[in-house]
C-alpha cells in the first residue's frame, strides 16, 4: 500500500513533512534515548535525521513504511554515536555492552514504534496512587530515591519496591495489549 504522506513529502510538501515530524518526533527521541541515555544527544540525533530526510526526500520510497525507515535510521545513528563516545562512564559501558554489535534488536519491533501512547498514559493512570506518585517523582521530576523517600516520609526500600511494582505493572498491561493486537491481526488474517 502506498504511503500518502510519504508521497507528499517526496514531492516536497512541507506541511506533510511537519505532520510526520510532529507525529514521530517525541517517540523517536525516546527511542534514541534508550541507546544514549541522554535526552539532549537523543534530540540531536533525531533532528539530524529529520534534516537529512528532508534533504534526501527524493529518495523516499512510498512503497515502504517510512516509519520503520526512520526508526531504523535513528537506531543506526544512535548506535554509531554510542560507539564513538569517548568518556567511559560506568553507565555507558552497560549501554555499549547491550547495544553495540548486537543485531538482535530491530527498530521495527520497538515498543516505541508501535504507537501505544494512549495505552501507556492509561496504564500509568491505573497505577495505585502511592505507586504512581513515586513513579512520577522519579520519572518526571528526576528525583533520587533518597529525595523521594524524604519527601514522602517513607523508606528507600519502599521507594525501590514501588518503582519495581510500577514498571512490572506497566509491563504486564502493555504486554497484554500487544498480545491483543497480535491476536486481532492473526484472526483477521484467518478470516480473510
Amino acid at each position: 500500500m502506498k504511503d500518502q504522506l510519504a508521497m507528499r513529502i517526496k514531492l516536497g510538501d512541507e506541511q506533510a513533512f511537519e505532520l510526520f515530524f510532529r507525529k514521530y518526533n517525541v517517540r523517536l527521541c525516546a527511542f534514541a534515548n534508550k541507546f544514549l541515555a541522554n535526552s539532549e544527544e537523543a534530540q540531536e540525533v533525531v533532528q539530524d535525521m529529520f534534516v537529512k530526510l528532508w534533504d534526501n526526500r527524493e529518495e523516499i520510497d512510498p512503497e515502504n513504511s517510512m516509519k520503520s525507515y526512520v526508526f531504523k535510521i535513528v537506531q543506526n545513528l544512535s548506535i554509531n554515536r554510542l560507539r564513538r563516545k569517548k568518556v567511559e562512564s560506568r553507565y555507558n559501558e552497560i549501554y555499549k555492552m547491550v547495544y553495540i554489535d548486537n543485531h538482535e534488536f530491530s527498530a521495527h519491533e520497538s515498543l516505541l514504534a508501535r504507537e501505544l501512547e494512549a495505552q501507556i498514559v492509561n496504564s500509568i493512570k491505573k497505577l495505585p496512587p502511592e505507586c504512581r506518585k513515586i513513579f512520577d517523582l522519579s520519572r518526571s521530576e528526576g528525583l533520587k530515591y533518597r529525595e523521594i523517600a524524604d519527601t514522602l516520609h517513607i523508606s528507600i526500600k519502599t521507594v525501590e519496591a514501588q518503582m519495581s511494582k510500577a514498571l512490572r505493572s506497566l509491563r504486564t498491561e502493555l504486554t497484554d495489549y500487544i498480545t491483543l493486537i497480535m491476536i486481532s491481526i492473526i484472526s483477521n488474517t484467518l478470516w480473510f
Partner: peptide, 22 residues
C-alpha cells in the same frame, strides 16, 4: 534489559512533559 529500557523511555516520553519539545 532492552525491553525494560523501552518501557522506561516510553513512560518517560509520556510523563516527562517538556523533555522533548516539538
Amino acid at each position: 534489559f532492552d525491553a525494560e529500557n523501552e518501557l522506561w523511555q516510553e513512560a518517560g516520553s509520556q510523563s516527562n512533559i517538556g523533555a522533548y519539545d516539538n
